[in-house]
Design a protein around this nucleic acid. Structure first.
Lengths: 129, 129
DNA sequence: CGTATTGCTACTGTAATTGTAGCAAAGAGG
DNA sequence: CCTCTTTGCTACAATTACAGTAGCAATACG
């Protein structure tokens, strides 16, 4: 599996199959990508303000992600208000809104994963090994 | 590779604010996390089959992500069918389904970000610097 | 017993991310 | 013009996550 000896693997990682969903899943699967979209959901932010909103993340990654998202057409640099979502980006953000409700119901990685008796009378059935 | 040095790296990066949405955004923002959930959306897969489905990703990351998702309560290891989504995970996956339609309409990061006259007629306004 | 499959770990590179410092280009005010 | 502040952005070094490959223990089957 030589990967891509000649050309730079600049394209999206999961996109090798050609399916756009994979490209999107990979782009959003980079660090701070989802967070940036989330913080920009209401109003545009300057790069500095965005950094503050993103828990003082490094400007290096923020800039890299911002470039990625800008290249993807989700984010654009306005005139005086800094970075903001494009119409497409706003549309994508709408897709993620249900996630908010889901997160509230989820409350983070619980130490006790037994949240619902899925059907079997569990108690810790010995995994087949 | 300490991985369990003391008791520190247990929490999620974006979770420092306490908001569950941040924890979720960070968890899903790790590599292959979204992809794994996506590949498991229909039926459970064995670890080997999942690896094949995920473009032969390294078992190292796959195992790490599988652990994360399992700890979060989204994925569980069945008896004979391998890994599968929990009821909660299936619910989360439902949230992501609209992403599929969105991706189809998006078609990946285009070299020319001007994909459609999206409404605002800005040709390419000089950025303020 | 021999073979195959499954879940999982160990290891070595490489790419990505973090953290800090700093720059050039505007604006605001004097 | 000169100073001061903000903004977008870049240059590094250090750390971490990830990719790739190899392999093991446990089960299942013939």
């Amino acid at each position: 599996m030589a990967k891509q000896a000649g050309s730079k693997p600049r394209s999206v990682r999961g996109s090798r199959t050609g399916r756009p969903i994979m490209a999107l899943l990979d782009l959003l699967g980079r660090r701070w990508a989802l967070r940036i979209l989330w913080e920009l959901r209401d109003a545009p932010l300057t790069s500095r303000a965005l950094r503050t909103a993103c828990d003082e993340a490094s400007p290096t990654v923020l800039q890299a992600r911002l470039d990625d998202l800008r290249e993807a057409g989700f984010v654009e640099l306005g005139d005086g208000s800094g970075y903001g979502l494009t119409a497409l980006g706003r549309d994508l953000c709408e897709t993620f809104m249900p996630l908010h409700r889901f997160a509230e119901r989820w409350k983070g990685p619980s130490p006790s994963p037994r949240l619902r008796g899925e059907g079997r009378g569990e108690g810790e059935p010995p995994r087949r090994r």
